[in-house]
Design a protein around this nucleic acid. Structure first.
Lengths: 338, 338
DNA sequence: CTGAAAGCGCTTACAG
DNA sequence: CTGAAAGCGCTTACAG
């Protein structure tokens, strides 16, 4: 493979001129530029990114940090981010910080970032003070999705408003006995979104003057499998709610399966709604409040790119809030007359 | 942040010695090594990967190329690969080659690979001759998962045996009228796995002396949503099969939903089985033939690492075949007595 | 508009 | 066992 020196030699110019011509800088005569471009093409020249990085101090790579890549939400984000960045000449190095235990994750280290990336996008991973300090010390712009880092821009949905939409949908259908799945222990690795959604559930119920039965608020690890197990006892009891709102579609799927196994008709005797519009929710007929995950990924990528290209100083500090929308389907219906 | 020169200065040795000491090369006195290690620690020194790459010619980065990252199978692979490589000091640059149209994908380019990665792992993307030639020209080792590239190592499952297992499960339950979902047009971007599975379906049916009804072999784009739509007409007809084998769990989920909407009891009047053991299959009670996707990712990563570390010459050429296993659940049952 | 030269921060023979 | 020096392939002032 040829280097910039090869191109310079056959084009009969200096490497400095080749460098300028190829990067479209001004102060190169049109004729020279044309000649250089031709030769570069002819030699299949592609600049060594590693040499470019060393000389320029910029890698055009961004770190994308995810807590679990295997879940739909995160995979969808990564896909959208990667495509958006690639269009703008940047690449993504992926870090899947998932640990063996649910409550922990691997820490972000200097090794992962230093001189390797120009910035980082963190996907719903609440950064520790140490990690924030590290990113600061390395001078890297940071954009987060989901859980905000104070003082840094964040792309997210309005978790409270979204949950309120779900609950009000059920209330509008006449439900008064409503349960909740998706409470999370306070020491869990990811708490912000769960807490916001649960808070909104409580608030909405209270404002509607509906009973808040603590036994109907169930903990779960946000997987479908766990949600099915976690909701089983409640659904099997005689005195059960007529509707359940799950803090995510995956959990809603689990709840609906638990109901099916107990032969409880959905939505005849039990309504179930989630949040997300998971890729399988439509085919499963699950009512939900949709969030546009890919749009969040693109927005975060754009925010970071703006900081990297640097026509402005640093990253804008504003949050970007992507709207959500109710998508009623077949898993919710009128409250049964008791 | 400090450089190797800083470390050399405060340790009172040359940069060459620092380089050797830090990389654990021999020919450094224990005392010197200890001193260098201390200073490096003290200064929070981390070598610039970009400078290391330029000097050594190795990036310790591998390209992972996926056709759609948002599907469970691919996300699971990427996650497993990333973790395995990271343990061995390598990082992943991700390329999501998904295009807007289903039948196409973006091509691999020199820009993505040249001096940027040391090797590539391709996830079920059939490489074009041009792409293979490119990878060769750049001297990059290549490991594929799923669809083999001639002469290169490949990690995969035995698609035919796996499909045979699924079909024989149905036959064992007394089914004789069996349909198939997952045929794919010959010009699709991904054909190997679909073709192998369909071939195995035909062969197994034939060997069992069962009727092969062409109208019961349905095309689909391998999503749950499409499979639900694609199987609807067949399921609604009076003369329908008593069992359907889908070439993937996602399609099986779609088929089962189509059945549910038509009020066809599963497995009472229709058995459905897929292939994968998708993350949601257990909670949905879907019978399937399980493949260990993470194991495939790890195996591919290890294969590539062996070529990169280079204690052997090049990558071993053998395929690695990961076994699959029948997981009967609630979506399959005895054939209804007609 | 163009070139010579320094510099980015490492690794790697080569001497000693 | 250790150091001086060349080299990896670019970019970037600085001159002209």
């Amino acid at each position: 493979m040829s280097t910039i020196t090869d191109v310079a030699r056959v084009a009969g110019v200096s490497v400095a001129t080749v460098s300028r011509a190829l990067r479209g800088l001004d102060r190169v005569s049109p004729a020279t530029r044309r000649r250089v471009l031709e030769v570069a093409e002819e030699l299949h020249y592609v600049a060594s990114p590693t040499a470019t990085s060393l000389a320029s101090g910029r890698t055009r790579v961004v770190a994308v940090v995810a807590p679990f890549l295997t879940r739909w939400f995160f995979a969808t984000l990564v896909s959208a981010i990667e495509k958006e960045l690639r269009v703008h000449g940047h690449h993504v190095i992926l870090f899947d910080l998932e640990d063996d235990t649910y409550d922990q994750r691997l820490p972000l280290t200097q090794n992962m970032l230093w001189k390797r990336v120009d910035g980082v996008i963190s996907l719903n991973v609440p950064m520790t003070p140490d990690e924030v300090e590290l990113v600061d010390r390395l001078g890297l712009p940071l954009v987060s999705i989901g859980s905000a880092v104070p003082g840094r821009p964040c792309v997210r949905i309005d978790d409270r408003a979204t949950m309120r939409t779900a609950v009000e949908h059920l209330i509008g259908l006449g439900h008064r006995r409503i349960g909740y799945v998706g409470d999370v222990p306070a020491n869990a690795a990811h708490t912000q979104t769960p807490q916001d959604r649960l808070t909104a559930f409580r608030d909405t119920m209270q404002q509607a003057g509906l009973p808040l039965v603590e036994e109907w608020i169930l903990g779960s690890d946000w997987t479908a499998r766990a949600a099915a197990a976690d909701s089983r006892t409640l659904l099997a009891s005689a005195d059960r709610p007529t509707a359940i709102v799950a803090a995510s579609d995956e959990m809603a799927i689990g709840v609906r399966e638990a109901a099916r196994r107990l032969d409880i008709d959905v939505p005849g005797r039990l309504s179930v709604i989630g949040i997300d519009d998971h890729v399988l929710s439509e085919v499963l007929g699950l009512s939900t409040v949709r969030q546009d995950v890919a749009a969040q990924g693109r927005a975060a990528a754009d925010l970071l790119l703006r900081a990297l290209v640097g026509d402005e100083d640093g990253v804008a500090e504003d949050d970007i809030v992507i709207p959500t929308v109710l998508v009623p389907r077949e898993s919710t219906g009128p409250a049964p007359v008791s």
